[in-house]
Amino acid sequence: MTTVYDFSLPGLDGETVIDLSAYRGQPILIANTASKCGFTPQYEGLQYDWSHYGNGGGGLTVIGVPSNDFGKQEPGDAQEIGVTCYKNYGVTFPMAAKAHVRGPQTIPLFRWLAEQGGILSRPRWNFYKYLIGRDGRLHSWHTPLTTPDGSRMIRQIQRVLLDR
């Protein structure tokens, strides 16, 4: 059976690889992101999740996957995306290289997420969020209307963190 730990993503810097198998046994929160979207401030909420529940605070890994698939709202190159993430929003969680998350060029990770969550879980805009349990399977998915630092998402994060 395929799990999230069977995938890897090129890093935003073009040199590193985000090997999801390195996070085996840990929950992961994956979000498709964009720098020029009305939901872009959700980077702050994703950073909150990383700071409070990951990065030594509980074991949650947060990964951003920039995509230009919706409204051409991620037109920049890696350097421009980095400015938005790192400088403007203080992101310290891993960021993948820009990728397709829908359509015929969808990357394998997002094809797998869509298979796991069903047709409604396929991203229809920026900042869809996918919470993966310690078993490497999709626990829940959330539209951009669910903020990463809102009570609904925090409850789900706490649930996967407690699930041993």
Rank of each mutant, 00 (worst) to 15 (best):
Q156K: 08
E115P: 06
M1L: 13
P41S: 01
H139M: 07
F127C: 09
P108M: 06
I132T: 03
H100M: 01
D69T: 08
G58V: 00
C85V: 06
R134W: 06
V62K: 04
P27M: 01
P66E: 00
G133M: 05
P41C: 06
D163T: 12
P27S: 03
R164K: 09
Y43L: 11
S35K: 09
P75V: 01
G118L: 02
L12G: 02
A114E: 12
G136F: 02
R24Y: 05
P75Y: 07
F127T: 05
P123H: 15
T106F: 09
T143N: 08
R102D: 09
R152W: 11
R124W: 08
Q26K: 15
F110G: 04
Q79A: 14
D19T: 11
R122D: 09
D13P: 11
L46M: 08
I30G: 13
L9F: 07
Q158K: 15
P27Y: 00
G64A: 15
Q105S: 13
L20T: 04
C37T: 07
T33S: 00
G64K: 10
W50R: 04
K129T: 10
E80M: 05
L46E: 08
M1Y: 06
M95H: 12
W112E: 11
L131F: 00
P108V: 03
R102G: 06
A96M: 05
C85H: 03
K129R: 06
R122K: 15
E80A: 14
G11T: 13
I63E: 02
K36L: 01
N55T: 03
Y23E: 13
Q116A: 15
T61R: 08
T33G: 05
K98C: 04
F110I: 12
Q79D: 13
I157C: 06
V91R: 04
D6V: 06
Y86K: 15
